[in-house]
Design a protein around this nucleic acid. Structure first.
Lengths: 344, 344
DNA sequence: CTGTTAGCGCTTTCAA
DNA sequence: TTGAAAGCGCTAACAG
């Protein structure tokens, strides 16, 4: 019977070589103050003994874990995953790893996650607030403690005190709706997400602004704010919505690609032709829209890049002087209307 | 100018209360050997002083980090994300967090990730090997060091020495192809992934087995093994494949949902009707197939459950005696053919 | 160029 | 029921 082996540590190498622990440590760090021949000896012995540094001990002693904590509202939204991929890319280039937690769309979970990160396991935190997040004391308290924080997506005015990366949701949706209007659409439907979420509020605002500017009537029965936080139920909501409509729209602007796809699916099944009868626009551009037949016109949001920028801001904070009152940085990324087959 | 504040530690509480650090530590642990009144005092003071335990120090001292390391080949494959979600679910219930790393389909990255985990930052590792992974010494060496490891998906015989969770890929694809055959299909096309990957080999095997059993001819020009590891290029490959085909198939069995969707997209654009002209089957069942018009018949793989099981096996190992030679556990999950509109 | 030593913040014997 | 002190493995200031 074999048991877990005791790990080789600096001390073991030091003893074998009859030198001090400090020298071994320095040698492994390639510290130039160590004689080259000593370095070589140390490296060889370390290798031979199967030495692996203990990251935890290093972290305790250095005060750095080289881990970035990431809190997203959900896993099953490709946007968040794509942002994580961007974070991971940038982080890895700078020797950081990412610890991902889902807040599961719950404020309580968000707070829990945050406070578990606060226990020192991460050097900094990237967070995308949930729709339930109405107070920001938990975030501000973290910042006040000197822990670097960067936010993205769904940022309310109240937290603008933290570095963050966003797109201009209202302008983006304005331009999409304006495009529909200029194509001569008169009955433009809006499908958004849960009303409590800032991004959806802004996208709705952009819709209303465009409609107002061009004097297009807004019909309440053509407006849907989906409330489900769950992929399966989104489908049901949209299905019910279209089943109930008496006079169909001639265009639908939706606030996520998934809503756009579900809209197309339901409209196609009801016998409408896209885009001949009804145009559809989505929001996000995460690949699925390109595959669907017809392919989905949408507002492209640079998700991967958003992740990279977020990570960059955070790592910048690591390297800045610890000034708690530092000027907060905001990055606004550009969106773009990508024309495909679902619009005329 | 405010600087990062020094964190409150046990010592601070101890001093304020004129008791020892040890007592504070025990009190916060709710150790019954501490007088209740002392416990209360400690809790109150800790709260008032804004005490937050230092997880790193705890880990160093206890030898546990309560973090699970997860290595997946890529982020942009919903299957892996869904597995991660399952892992996260189970892990969180048991007070673990997950550190996700992507090996980016590269053996070198896989090895790097593994060895960085080996530095003691995680209590155990969950890994899905890449297609490039042909030698398993890196995994075995980790296991030999007593670090718990569980594998999932794409497991070759050579690593069966580790706990793992899989589905029976060959049987699953056999049953799908058999279904097509029983529907009277004679020219059944196969679209798989990169040949080096065990799961794709097995799915191909299932296809061949079924064709052989029912004496259906296999046409080389109806077979495609996609080589791209990148969503964008997958589309191109499949497009080229169908453009080149002279006599079309009457059914296509594909090895991922994405291949299935891309197949439908390309066939529809070429003017074929699905399922009237050609039936299509996918593999995975991750939600997208349900939205497409027509919806995609596919083999449903229980991804979320796979994640839960993998996490369960790992956490079981944490609680088992450290016997390196323990009987390895293998869990085989059931798949199911889900009939939708893309097959007759 | 190398060694000594004092931490990093917490847990855990061992004593009292 | 509490305290003193050793130790987890590594870093870094200081001394030589």
């Amino acid at each position: 019977m074999t048991f877990k082996k005791r790990r080789v540590k600096l001390e073991d190498i030091a003893r074998k070589l009859n030198i001090s622990i400090a020298t071994v440590s320095r040698a492994l760090d390639k510290n130039p103050r160590v004689k080259l021949s000593t370095q070589e000896k140390v490296f060889k012995t370390a290798e031979a003994m199967g030495y692996m540094p203990n990251q935890i001990a290093k972290s305790l002693s250095s005060g750095k874990t080289n881990i970035i904590g990431v809190i997203i509202p959900r896993y099953d939204e490709p946007f968040f995953i794509e942002v994580c991929r961007g974070i991971d890319h940038y982080a890895r280039e700078h020797n950081y790893k990412i610890l991902i937690s889902s807040s599961r769309n719950s404020f309580e979970f968000e707070r829990e996650n945050l406070s578990s990160f606060e226990k020192g396991i991460v050097d900094g935190i990237i967070l995308s607030p949930t729709h339930e997040t109405e107070t920001f004391v938990h975030i501000k308290s973290i910042i006040k403690k000197g822990i670097p924080v960067v936010l993205f997506d769904n940022i309310r005015e109240e937290v603008r005190g933290a570095d963050h990366v966003i797109i201009e949701d209202d302008k983006a949706s304005f331009s999409a709706v304006e495009f529909l209007i200029k194509k001569g659409k008169k009955r433009i439907s809006f499908i958004g997400g849960i009303r409590e979420k800032k991004v959806f509020q802004d996208r709705f605002k952009g819709y209303l602004d465009a409609m107002k500017k061009y004097n297009i009537p807004v019909y309440d029965d053509l407006i849907l704010h989906c409330e489900s936080l769950d992929r399966e139920y989104e489908d049901v909501e949209i299905q019910n919505f279209f089943n109930k409509i008496t006079a169909p729209p001639d265009a639908v602007f939706t606030c996520t690609d998934n809503y756009g796809l579900l809209t197309m699916k339901n409209l196609l099944r009801l016998g409408y032709k896209i885009p001949e009868d009804i145009s559809v626009i989505g929001f996000g551009d995460l690949g699925l829209g390109e595959v669907f037949v017809p392919s989905l016109t949408c507002i492209a949001q640079p998700s991967f890049e958003m992740g990279q920028k977020v990570a960059e801001l955070l790592i910048d904070q690591f390297n800045e002087p610890n000034d708690v009152n530092h000027r907060k940085k905001v990055i606004k990324l550009k969106t773009e209307l990508v024309l495909r087959d679902s619009t005329t």
